[in-house]
Design a protein around this nucleic acid. Structure first.
Lengths: 144, 144
DNA sequence: ACTTTTAATTTGTATATGCAAATGAAGGGG
DNA sequence: CCCCTTCATTTGCATATACAAATTAAAAGT
């Protein structure tokens, strides 16, 4: 193995970005209803479990910038999947009935996605990798 | 741990995208010369080790779409860091002298980046995670 | 040698995403 | 009660990235 490969394999920024691109392709193929990118469904799920969550909390749970959350919510609101309710400085988000329906579909696609990559990567391996990424994100966020 | 957290922690798409966003922040802070996003430096490194590499090979090594490579190279060419040489259907890319200089800088920033996340995540952990991501990308690419 | 096919690159267009500046709303000090 | 600060959200702008269609150049079949 030459020097270049060593560097590429050992650089977390590089391997993580590359892997994210690859798994995004798989996810986009799996969530092929609704014309929404996969990330939107994760936002829907979080709102499902935290009705009336503030945008700020959403940003934190998804690790996205506030501006990104604004635009996501704009889009979801436009599709009548969530509702905004401003309360003072904050904005609280909840699911509409249509949003609930989309959530149900999402959950079944999610199983498909799990099955898809588990078959390719191995079930245990996928679980381990996912947990490590989760843990690493939390540590990084605490420091940055 | 509730159902939502379970799903979020176990979904590789979600944890991978989130982690990629977080580590990108760290990388952008570390590579603060040249006004280039981190990815460009990886392209430069690959060209450094494969002078005259074709665009197609670059795409494969970086896991990016051909159109993305075109635009990256446009930018690097504009900055006089690489040169294009079309040969038939293909285009071959090499570093200029300035490109070589940038590469040297990049290598030292890379050490900084490694040190930065190793301190937060642990040296062994970082290495393991990076290797797993590398391996997983390769498997995924083979299948998709 | 001409036409058809194939393969690499480019261009057009769309989107997720971020940062920095602007807005707007609460709350505290005088 | 007004000003100033603080903080959540939004808006303006920039960019990495992808897909699909267009281009271009080699290669293959006739």
């Amino acid at each position: 193995m030459n020097e270049e490969e060593q560097v590429l394999i050992h650089c977390l920024y590089f391997t993580a970005s590359r892997f994210a691109r690859n798994i995004t392709k798989l996810a986009e193929r799996t969530f092929d209803f609704g014309n929404l990118a996969p990330s939107y469904f994760y936002m829907i799920m979080i709102v499902k479990f935290h009705p009336g969550i503030t945008q700020k909390e959403l940003c934190h749970k998804l690790s996205i910038a506030p501006s990104t959350s604004t635009r996501f919510i704009d889009k979801l609101e436009g599709l009548k999947l969530v509702t905004r309710k401003t309360s003072g400085k904050q904005t609280c988000i909840s699911l509409t009935e249509d949003g609930e329906k989309v959530y149900v579909q999402f959950r079944s696609s999610l199983k498909e996605l799990f099955a898809g990559y588990s078959e390719i990567l191995g079930h245990e391996f996928s679980l381990d990798l996912s947990k490590m990424l989760h843990e690493a994100s939390n540590k990084l966020e605490k420091e940055l």
